[in-house]
């Protein structure tokens, strides 16, 4: 790892250490009994250590490991999405294609750096393939609804998330060999925004911003979290090809997208009558609960960087 990567991980490590100490003190002050908010906070912090360790390990192993890591992330996300949205037995061919063809193919296209294909594979080819497969079953019940469920699942869990490792394919002059830092920048800023929105909301939250979709989101959390995370994004300019004010603007853009991503995903969860997508990450819920903001931020971040920084 180069100096900047080490510095970044050291920074994240110190932040988590601070968070762990705060969590420990809070727990100690409230006594032995269970306290749902603080226990959940500590579970979240513990899960963060693990997630950072997994990402750090993948970074250590290099680009292929990072692509494989996000392949796994997409798999778990798609699994959670399809589990939660009911399909019928006649959707079997479409679902087989989703898990065993589209998912590996999208990541293969990224691994071989075929931009012209991976950027349109799901929204064009798969978009058309899925309803064809669904129609072969001869079942017309709720056809449009069923088809869009699988299309949405693939767009969010596979296509959008795959744009995180797709950042490795960008040829940015003067940024050779440092692509992993661009991934780190995206993930760190967007996740930090989630965390800071949560913290600001818990500390100062009064007015609910979308009571029908996500009762935990507040105006104070939104403004404070996005502002602080965008400042943090600006101060991380040294790991990006951006200058400080560009880094701040890009951070603001992906933080806003991340916020709305969370809102959209909450709407889907609400409609399905659940609070979390799954249970695999203790304290956080499922893979998609942790990645809802990244889903929406990643493709736009990729295209913004590609448009302005790749000649």
């Amino acid at each position: 790892m180069d100096r900047h990567t080490l510095l970044l991980f050291a920074g994240i490590g110190s932040l988590l250490l601070l968070a762990s100490i705060v969590g420990f003190v809070l727990k100690w002050r409230t006594g032995v009994g269970p306290n749902p908010v603080i226990d959940n906070l500590n579970a979240r912090i513990k899960a963060w250590w693990l997630m950072v360790a997994v990402i750090g390990f993948a970074f250590l192993l290099g680009q292929t490991a990072v692509i494989l890591l996000f392949y796994g992330v997409s798999f778990y996300a798609l699994r959670e999405f399809i589990t939660l949205v009911p399909t019928r037995s006649s959707d079997y061919p479409a679902l087989v294609a989703a898990f065993y063809f589209v998912l590996p193919m999208q990541y293969l296209l990224i691994a071989i750096d075929w931009y012209g294909m991976f950027s349109i594979f799901v929204p064009v080819y798969v978009f058309l393939l899925l309803p064809i497969l669904a129609s072969l079953g001869g079942d017309s019940a709720r056809f449009l609804e069923r088809t869009s469920k699988v299309q949405w699942g693939l767009m969010l869990a596979v296509f959008c998330i795959s744009f995180v490792p797709a950042l490795l394919t960008l040829d940015i002059p003067g940024f050779e060999g440092r692509h992993l830092l661009l991934i780190a920048y995206l993930v760190v800023v967007v996740q930090l925004s989630d965390v800071l929105q949560y913290v600001c909301g818990k500390l100062f939250g009064k007015r609910k911003i979308a009571p029908n979709l996500s009762p935990s989101k507040t105006v104070e959390g939104f403004v404070g979290g996005i502002a602080l995370a965008s400042l943090a994004g600006a101060s991380l300019w040294w790991i990006t090809p951006f200058n400080p004010w560009q880094a701040g603007l890009v951070a603001l853009l992906i933080n806003l997208l991340g916020f709305f991503g969370g809102l959209v995903m909450s709407a889907i969860k609400r409609d399905r009558g659940v609070k979390d997508w799954g249970h695999m990450i203790e304290g956080h819920g499922g893979m998609l609960d942790r990645l809802d903001s990244v889903c929406f931020a990643a493709p736009i971040f990729f295209h913004v960087v590609r448009y302005w920084w790749v000649p």
């Binding site: 798999f75 699994r79 959670e80 399809i82 589990t83 079997y92 679902l95 087989v96 898990f99 065993y100 799954g278």
Partner: peptide, 8 residues
């Protein structure tokens, strides 16, 4: 069907 789908 032969191939299982990996749903939860």
């Amino acid at each position: 069907r032969v191939l299982p789908l990996p749903l939860l």
